[in-house]
Amino acid sequence: MLTLYIGNKNYSSWSLRPWILLTHLGVTFLEVPVQVCGRGPNDTHRPYSDNGLVPALHDGDIQVSESLAICEYVAEQYPQAWPADRHARAVARSVASEMHAGFGSLRGAMPMNVKARAHGGPLPAAVKADVARICEIWEDCRSRFAGNKGPYLFGDFSVADAMFAPVVWRFFCYNVDLPPRAAAYRDAMLDHPAMQAWERGALEETIHVAQSDAALAQWGGPREGNYLVLAAA
């Protein structure tokens, strides 16, 4: 059986990606949650993660690190994790890699915080550019490849959707204004049963990462009905 080591569901964007893919595919795996209280490698993770990071996937003696590499490994056994069409698959791999490597301004300004419900506000130029590029990707993939096959980037759910899942939470939780077609994709992702299951897990957590929670104040503070109880300053 596969074993997936993941960080806190409220905060660990990297962990969400392989988790949602495996869950969507119906793969049986053992989920092992571990505490993540900061950024970068942590020696406490070394016993199960060679690079000191999570997520980490174990398949017998095989260990796979990094969210995109884990998704690629899973796709070797479940090829439906990528679009069947060669052209669509090439684009899916390209945008998944772009998400994995890029959008640092957005990541820094809006750390994933599933419990957060911010009012939102004007975006700094660099963040605005990241948001615009992501919306461009979403709209392009949907218009060129999705057709009537389904509500996701390439119709059926794929690794590309898994890679963008943390951004979906960021846009929703920080109340980022999106153009209509990008907003429709965001909403379709939020309706995915695995995304809803991840949210339920996040809401059950009691650990607070002050650095991530503090970012909420930059975006107008919590909306009414906000899930998040901010850590003490």
Rank of each mutant, 00 (worst) to 15 (best):
Y185Q: 05
M195K: 07
D191P: 05
H192R: 06
P166G: 11
F172Y: 10
Y174P: 01
F164V: 14
W198M: 01
A197K: 04
Y174E: 03
F171I: 08
G150W: 04
P193N: 05
C173V: 10
A160T: 08
D156E: 06
A160F: 03
K149H: 06
P180T: 08
H192N: 09
L153Y: 03
C173F: 01
G201I: 02
A197L: 10
F164A: 08
Y185H: 13
R181L: 04
E205K: 13
N175K: 04
E199F: 04
L178Y: 03
S158K: 01
W198P: 02
D191I: 14
A197M: 07
A165Y: 09
F171H: 06
V159A: 04
M163A: 08
Y152T: 04
G150S: 12
P179C: 11
P166N: 13
A162W: 00
D161L: 00
V159I: 02
F172P: 01
A162S: 04
R200A: 13
M195W: 12
N175H: 05
F157Y: 03
K149A: 05
P180V: 12
R170C: 10
V159N: 02
L203G: 10
N175S: 10
D177G: 14
S158M: 01
F171Y: 11
L153F: 02
L178I: 06
E199N: 14
G201Y: 05
M189G: 10
A162E: 00
P179E: 13
R200H: 09
L153K: 02
E205H: 12
P166W: 07
G201S: 13
K149W: 02
D156H: 05
A165V: 09
F171D: 15
P166C: 15
L153M: 07
A162M: 06
F172G: 04
V167W: 15
V176I: 08
A197D: 07
L178R: 02
W169L: 15
A202I: 06
P180K: 13
F172S: 12
R186E: 12
E204W: 12
C173A: 08
Y185S: 09
P180L: 11
L178T: 01
L153H: 01
R186P: 09
D191F: 15
R200W: 11
A160H: 02
M189A: 06
R181Y: 10
S158L: 05
E205S: 11
V168P: 12
Y185I: 09
A188C: 11
P166D: 10
K149D: 11
M195L: 10
R186S: 13
